[in-house]
Design a protein around this nucleic acid. Sequence first.
DNA 1: CTGAAAGCGCTAACAA
DNA 2: TTGTTAGCGCTTTCAG
Lengths: 343, 343
Amino acid sequence: MTTIYDVAKAAGVTAATVSYVLSGRGSISQATREKVLKCAHELGYRPNLLARSLTKQQTRTIGLVIPHIINPFYAGIAETVERNAYTRGFRTVITNTYEDERLGQELLEDLAARRVDGIIALPGGLSLAAIQSMLKSGLPVICCLWEEEGQNIPSGVGLDFKRGGQLVARHLLELGHRRLSIIVDTRPDGSLDHHLRFSGFTETLQDAGCPLEPQFIAHGDSSLESGEAAAHQLLTQPERPTALFATNDLMAMGAISAAWKLGLRVPHDLSVVGFDNIALSPFMAPPLTTVNVDRDRLVTLALNLLLGRIEGKQLETPPLLLPEMVIRSSTAAPASERGPASP
Amino acid sequence: MTTIYDVAKAAGVTAATVSYVLSGRGSISQATREKVLKCAHELGYRPNLLARSLTKQQTRTIGLVIPHIINPFYAGIAETVERNAYTRGFRTVITNTYEDERLGQELLEDLAARRVDGIIALPGGLSLAAIQSMLKSGLPVICCLWEEEGQNIPSGVGLDFKRGGQLVARHLLELGHRRLSIIVDTRPDGSLDHHLRFSGFTETLQDAGCPLEPQFIAHGDSSLESGEAAAHQLLTQPERPTALFATNDLMAMGAISAAWKLGLRVPHDLSVVGFDNIALSPFMAPPLTTVNVDRDRLVTLALNLLLGRIEGKQLETPPLLLPEMVIRSSTAAPASERGPASP
DNA sequence: CTGAAAGCGCTAACAA
DNA sequence: TTGTTAGCGCTTTCAG
């Protein structure tokens, strides 16, 4: 691997000079600049970021920690962060916890060891303690979409998940549904946002005098598989629900799949609502009614916060983002309200 | 940030000693070992990988270059690579070209500048020239799923895409379809694998005396959107095809969506076949018939090759992987062959 | 406009 | 068992 010294020797100058022309700093005569550039090119010189970062004490790199890239919601976030950070001069390294707190901890340590300039952390596989520890060592961490009972979360950008649950309940109620069901991800080690979607949903039903029945509550782990399994269970009961809310789009897709396999038509026999509005949602059969999370805004805010912190500014956390209903074709009035089916 | 020197001073030893206990190398008395460990912990010491990598001349990190993480096919590959590499002691940094060759080139340079120990490169947004250039500078690069007319590809692991196209044609033919259509990604700057899926498909039809009609060929860019648009075009012609092959699963999903919106039932009115067998495929409505690419095997082979090369071994490229049909519920005999529809 | 020199944090001979 | 020392590749004062 050719170094700056090799280039310097070839160009008959010193390493410092090469460094200057390469960085565009300092004032260098046109002649030597060209000579250096030429030599660098000929020797196939490639800067060593390790060395550079070591001296400059910054990497212009941020870390992004998410639970699982296979979930299109996180893939979308990852893309947005990567592109956004890139235009602001930062590289992004994406890491998956796979919902494993041990791994999550390790990843955080690793990012710190790589001396990323800052981290954006999403819940799922990350303990608050681990984050605090990073923060304490001076590494900026921005928490996105984080919800944690009681404890105060480090600065970040949040979303009003509870409101999301309310919106869904209201939508379904307005369509005339009375036998509602839910598939919710409430794994003990998961983050609490699904609980909030759940409570927003149930409380609204309660208030409307139409409380959620216990047998219409099923659990999943946010995956397609779990959504399908939970929906199957819900839909094979003696009295079926007419509507189903899955607390994320992937489980909703699984639910639609379960319905399909049972010969039930969505939305005729069953209305389905998801949460997240992933890129796939408009292309499901039928297109999924869901709750949108404004990822662009989320990421922009998070990055503002993070890059601000990296530059030493202590910006204040923005207000909660507001989710909004996206009504597509997977919801309709219950069949009894509409007369006979039309194919 | 506390360094090894801080720890050394606190423990009353020298930096080298600290390095030794931290790495577990050398022989250190139990007493000092404990003392050092204790100090390191108390000071919140975190190793600096930049410095470490700089001296060790290796990062234990590999780069993965893919077109677009939002495509579940690539997300799946990314996960497999990351997990696999991790168990072998390597970290992975995932980068997206977004199908942009300029960006792709830059990413490659960046990975090299970060001194990753090796790279796994998938086609789409990467020029062969850029890869060759990395190779020339001594950085191991393994090309996966690469197809390039004439030119000889650097070592890597490939798949018999043509055969995949043949399998699809055969499957559809056997079901009794005669009016077949295809949505293919043949962007000029894309990789050639879709061309191969296409030619395998068309040639088989040709041989069967049932050549693909020109108006039944549509184009996409591998995205959901493009699949839906292309399918819409195909399905609104005076005489509809009875079967549709999309050269990847995402476009197939778009096609199912288009069919749904036109009130056509899959597979009753239209059979749909995809390619890739992404994690979503079994959960589409209906579950998608597709061509499986054995990602585990692919990644294992690629990693063997890469880690081998990193250790200096020059292993020979394994034979092409063989794709295989996965028949699910999106294909059936054409309606005319089956009598009237059953709901 | 360019060179000399110190330093970023860590590792690995080699001595002691 | 531990310390000394040189060096990894680059940046950046400070001189000249």
